[in-house]
Structure formats: structure tokens, C-alpha cells
């Protein structure tokens, strides 16, 4: 690791004061990605700011039409929380599929979403469940938030504080995980939000989470496997790596989408 200074503010005001200093600030939450990145010397922050003691970033509550989850909420807590399990069981299930139990005991929702790893699970849920990303001074819709590979709409130093998602009438997340890292080689979150509003969000396959709008339109008209079986997923721009080719990923995405719809209609 390169050398860095460390601070652990207890309030957002303390954090603001740190940010107004001269040092370049990097936030640390659970550290499940960042600490590995530091160890590989792929990041060189001047000031590492551990945000885990800030109470304003914690908590999980029901809203009129969904859930609001604090940025510091750990994957293990989303997976086991009674409100999540009752309201959006698919979200609890997804959280329980991230990494392994030890990673889930540290990793946070906010960290995962802010990092926007192309293979992370949460971005698919947040995009499919019409999420809203709250920061200290604004709210950003998920459609505007996830921009590109590891890139989000967050400005330099802007802190993600909480995420709101809407409760679907039914939803399914299907993931084809890399058996070593447990990251998604492809993952598809299908959410039927009611009133003909269907969302299909894909992670792992492309440089950034994205929606399959032609599949959404077909499912909005007729929520069945038959309605999408004739559609094709384009391999253009999909990821190519040692695990899978773009064509393989495109095929996986369609298969996973059909599995999700099948699970919801059987």
C-alpha cells in the first residue's frame, strides 16, 4: 500500500470539514473492494476517510412504496432483515448471493453501488427497482446514476447516503456466478412493478449495468416466457474476458431472463 493519512469522522459535519481540507479524500466503508485495491497499489488516496461511524448513513426503513436503505447497511443485514424479506424478498436473496458470508459481514450497499463494478449484483436491483440514490444534497435516479465502467453520476467527493427502491409486485434475480470470485459473469434482475411497468436490468455482461428495453416492452404486454423467446440480446459492446465471450454473455443474459420470467410465472 502507498502511504495515506486516516480519519474517522463521527458526523457529516466532521466529514465536510475534512473534505474542505487540502488532501484528496477517499471514502472507506466496508472496504471489501477498496482495501484490495489499496493493496495492489491501484489507488493512492492522500486521506482515507472511514465513514462507518456516521449514524446518518445507517438505518433501514419502509417507505410508502418501498424501502429506504442507509448506505452503510451491510449485505448480511439486507439478506437477513425482516422488512426486506417481507417487502422485497428478491432483494434479500440477492444480498445473500454476494461474495461469501465473511464478505457480506463487511461489504455495504452504498459501497457496492458507488463503486459500480460491472459485475456487482446490487446495481441490477437498484436499476430494476426504479431506485433513487440519495447523496448529501441531491437525489439521482438509478437511470441517471450508473454511467459507465466504474463510473457514476457522483461528483468528486459527493457522498452516497442512502438508496430507495420500489416494491415490485413480483421480481426475480438470476445470476451466473464466477465460482471463484462469486461475481456475476451475467446477472439479470426482472421486476414487475405493476401497471404494465416491467424492468429488466442486466449486470456482469456489459461495462455497466443496463436495461433490456425490448424485453421490457414485450413483458409489459405479455408477462410470459413465450413473449421474449423470439427476442435476441445483442452482443455488441459486451464484456470479453477469460471467463466468457460477448456472444456467450449475450446468450446467458437471454437464458437468465427467461429463467427469471419462468420462475415468476410457473
Amino acid at each position: 500500500m502507498y502511504q495515506f493519512d486516516f480519519a474517522k469522522p463521527k458526523t457529516l459535519d466532521d466529514l465536510k470539514a475534512l473534505r474542505e481540507g487540502e488532501a484528496e479524500v477517499q471514502y472507506l466503508a466496508g472496504g471489501m473492494t477498496l482495501i484490495a485495491t489499496l493493496k495492489q497499489r491501484l489507488a493512492m488516496p492522500e486521506l482515507l476517510v472511514d465513514i462507518s461511524a456516521i449514524d446518518d448513513l445507517k438505518g433501514l426503513s419502509k417507505t410508502a412504496d418501498g424501502l429506504k436503505i442507509g448506505a452503510l447497511t451491510k449485505h448480511a443485514d439486507v439478506a437477513s432483515n425482516a422488512d426486506v424479506k417481507n417487502t422485497i424478498p428478491t432483494l434479500a436473496k440477492l444480498a445473500g448471493m454476494i461474495g461469501d458470508p465473511q464478505v457480506r459481514n463487511r461489504g455495504t450497499l452504498g459501497g457496492s453501488v458507488a463503486n459500480n463494478d460491472p459485475s456487482a449484483d446490487y446495481p441490477a436491483a437498484v436499476l430494476a427497482l426504479k431506485g433513487t440514490i440519495h447523496t448529501e444534497n441531491r437525489s439521482i435516479t438509478a437511470d441517471d446514476f450508473f454511467v459507465d465502467l466504474f463510473e457514476t453520476a457522483l461528483d468528486e467527493g459527493e457522498l452516497l447516503t442512502a438508496i430507495e427502491v420500489k416494491t415490485p409486485t413480483r421480481a426475480s434475480y438470476q445470476k451466473f456466478a464466477n465460482p471463484a470470485s462469486r461475481y456475476a459473469i451475467a446477472g439479470v434482475f426482472v421486476a414487475d412493478l405493476g401497471g404494465g411497468d416491467v424492468r429488466v436490468a442486466v449486470t456482469g455482461a456489459g461495462p455497466c449495468v443496463y436495461r433490456l428495453k425490448d424485453f421490457e416492452a414485450a413483458l409489459a404486454k405479455d408477462f410470459s416466457v413465450d413473449a421474449i423467446k423470439g427476442l435476441e440480446v445483442s452482443a455488441d459492446g459486451l464484456n470479453e474476458d477469460v471467463h466468457a465471450s460477448p456472444d456467450y454473455r449475450a446468450d446467458l443474459v437471454k437464458t437468465l431472463t427467461m429463467r427469471a420470467v419462468k420462475e415468476l410465472t410457473d
Partner: peptide, 28 residues
């Protein structure tokens, strides 16, 4: 050393975590 293998697991406030991916300064 990349939080895959679990050989470094310890209990932190009662729950298992990987000690290769935790900074001492986080533990105050």
C-alpha cells in the same frame, strides 16, 4: 491475501470476517 480463501478469518464483534481485508485503524 485477496479475501477469497478464508484462512485469515477472525471474529469481529462476534461475526466472522477476513482479517487480510481489514485495516487496524478501522478497529478502534
Amino acid at each position: 491475501e485477496t479475501s477469497q480463501c478464508g484462512a485469515c478469518n477472525v471474529l469481529l464483534d462476534g461475526v466472522p470476517v477476513k482479517s487480510c481485508s481489514l485495516l487496524m485503524v478501522q478497529l478502534d
